[in-house]
Design a protein around this nucleic acid. Structure first.
Lengths: 205, 205
DNA sequence: GTCTATATAGCGATAGAC
DNA sequence: GTCTATCGCTATATAGAC
């Protein structure tokens, strides 16, 4: 690998190597933040996880909360690929949510991260508070619009307000994550989500 | 107040006074744990909240996690009074959940506590892990039994497995709490819960 | 770019005076 | 029953050597 591989073109040093270090740090940070939340997750543990000192780690990220932000941003992009809100068929994003739930069961660390941090982040002085406020607002409004389109086609349960369907769907996904983390064999997040969605929308239309 | 007021009968000292201190400590602990979870909530802050030193506080409780356990136990008893699982009518506990959700909106600290701690508590080495495993297991099994009784009477939505109804209800309540904490004016937990419950059960039977 | 060393701060818990 | 004082530990972040 060289500079060309990274897509950048800087005069010195192997940016590929640096990029890989960054990626490794993000992965370690994800695992550590996931296990104990933001406050409890220590740079020390991430550093040892990735084979560096704390100071070495803080060369790549200015501080702890910037590292958190980078982790959240990265995972968010990845998740959104599974839920095509811009599809013409309003059922596609809904089916995507089930796909996402099934995928999530294969990455417990990510589930732990979002579960712990979204709870922590309800506190207004949390480093990720604004992130979660914005994220929920966006997700609910997108889903509301999507369920409204279902209603237009007559495949949303009569009398169900689109916003309630949206908030209910998000709430159910979040709540199922807690139950799944507490009892991974006893709960199937994707199945339970599908049961719920089928009660409010005609998935086979 | 004297010993008789407390219901105990010990040779020395005013137990009423001690009992009041204990209650004050529990209240402070609830607020502090609620704001930042277990790890971030410090005995120091609770102590200053209640006008005592940390050592004075630890005279009443052996350590930090015992204090957490006491808080959880106390609030649990209180909440359970609102949900009469032993009622003959299986709709009564379900209506009780809506009452509970409405009540919860008046005690944000309690909601924050459960929200933050149930997420933290998914980690196996958390002081409250066993508590939450047991609590969810019990709640889901009670609710499953209750929805099964609804099914017998033909007021549960056809094809809806009682356990899915139970897990869905618990998940929805948990998830709505997160959304409510992030946007208290935009979300009505009790209303949304009722919308959900009405889609799976005939509440007016 | 990564290290060692260190500054600064907060934590839970204990010992012992009163 | 409550206090002061303190121990031992962990944390983030910075300074400067290499």
């Amino acid at each position: 690998m060289n500079e060309a591989t990274t897509g950048r073109n800087k005069p010195r040093g192997s940016y590929a190597k640096t990029g890989m270090k960054r990626a490794a740090i993000l992965e370690a940070a994800l695992a550590v933040f996931a296990k104990g939340g933001y406050r409890s997750g220590s740079l020390r543990e991430m550093a040892s996880h990735v084979g560096m000192s704390e100071a070495g780690l803080l060369h790549h990220f200015p501080n702890k909360s910037a590292l958190l932000a980078a982790v959240l941003e990265l995972r968010d992009e990845h998740a959104m690929e599974m839920v095509p809100f811009d599809s013409e068929d309003p059922l596609e994003p809904i089916r995507g949510l089930i796909t996402l739930a099934r995928y999530n069961a294969s990455v417990p660390g990510v589930v732990e991260l979002y579960c712990t941090l979204s709870a922590e982040g309800t506190s207004p002085d949390h480093p990720a508070h604004e992130y979660f406020v914005g994220r929920y607002d966006l997700t609910v409004s997108r889903l509301t619009h999507n369920f409204a389109r279902c209603a237009e086609r007559g495949i949303l349960r009569p009398g169900m307000p689109p916003e309630s369907a949206a908030r209910g769907t998000v709430a159910l996904m979040d709540g199922l994550q807690v139950q799944w983390l507490l009892d991974r064999d006893g709960v199937d997040m994707a199945d339970e989500l599908e049961v719920y969605l089928r009660t409010i929308v005609d998935l086979d239309a």
